[in-house]
Amino acid sequence: MTIIHTPNRLLMAISAVAVLVGSTAANSDTEYEVGAGINYFMFEDDFNVADDVGFRGYGGLRFDEHWGLELVWDKLATETDPTDLGFDLSQYYLSGLYHFNQTETLQPYLSLGWGQGDFEVSDVGYSATTTSTNIGAGLKWFVNEHWVVRPSINYFMNTEIDEDFTTLGLTLAYVWGGGSTPAPAPVRAKAPADTDGDGVVDTSDRCTATPAGVRVNAQGCPLDSDGDGVFDHLDNCPDTGSRLKVDVKGCPMQLSETVAIDLKVNFDSNSDVVKAEYFAEIQRVADFLAQYEGTSVVIEGHTDTSGAATYNKALSQRRANAVAAVLVNRMNVPAGRVSAKGYGEERPIADESTRAGREANRRVVAKVAAVAKSMELK
Results as ranks from 00 to 15, higher is better:
Asp205Met: 07
Thr195Arg: 14
Ala260Ser: 14
Asn8Phe: 13
Gly250Trp: 06
Leu315Arg: 13
Cys221Pro: 08
Met253Glu: 15
Lys373Leu: 07
Thr354Arg: 11
Asp287Trp: 11
Asp239Pro: 04
Phe63Trp: 11
Glu33His: 05
Pro82Leu: 02
Ile153Met: 13
Gly344His: 04
Ala128Ser: 14
Glu300Val: 05
Lys313Gln: 14
Ala193Ile: 11
Ala36Trp: 05
Phe288His: 10
Ala26Lys: 10
Ala218Gln: 13
Ala324Val: 10
Arg243Ala: 14
Val371Phe: 05
Ala137Asp: 02
Thr203Asn: 12
Gly35Phe: 01
Ala309Asp: 11
Asp162Glu: 15
Ala77Gly: 09
Glu70Asp: 11
Gly169Pro: 00
Gly125Ile: 01
Thr131Ser: 15
Asp81His: 07
Glu120Asn: 02
Gly113Trp: 01
Ala191Ser: 10
Phe156Cys: 06
Ser127Gln: 07
Ala137Gln: 00
Glu160Val: 02
Ser271Arg: 05
Phe47Glu: 03
Asn266Leu: 06
Ala280Tyr: 02
Ala290Gln: 12
Glu257Ser: 15
Leu289Gly: 02
Leu10Asn: 13
Arg330Pro: 00
Ser90Ala: 10
Cys221Leu: 10
Ala173Glu: 06
Ala212Gly: 05
Ala322Pro: 06
Glu65Phe: 01
Ser122Pro: 00
Ala280Thr: 12
Asp287Ser: 15
Ala260Trp: 01
Thr103Gly: 14
Ala13Lys: 12
Lys373Ser: 11
Gly35Asp: 03
Lys367Cys: 02
His5Pro: 10
Leu71Asn: 04
Thr195Met: 10
Phe55Asp: 03
Ile3Leu: 15
Tyr292Asn: 13
Val328Ala: 08
Phe63Cys: 00
Ser111Phe: 01
Thr133Phe: 14
Ala366Ser: 03
Leu234Gln: 14
Val259Ser: 09
Asp29Val: 01
Trp176Lys: 04
Asp239Met: 12
Ser152Arg: 09
Phe279Gly: 00
Phe231Thr: 11
Ala286Thr: 07
Asp74Gln: 13
Ile4Gly: 08
Ser353Met: 08
Asp247Ile: 07
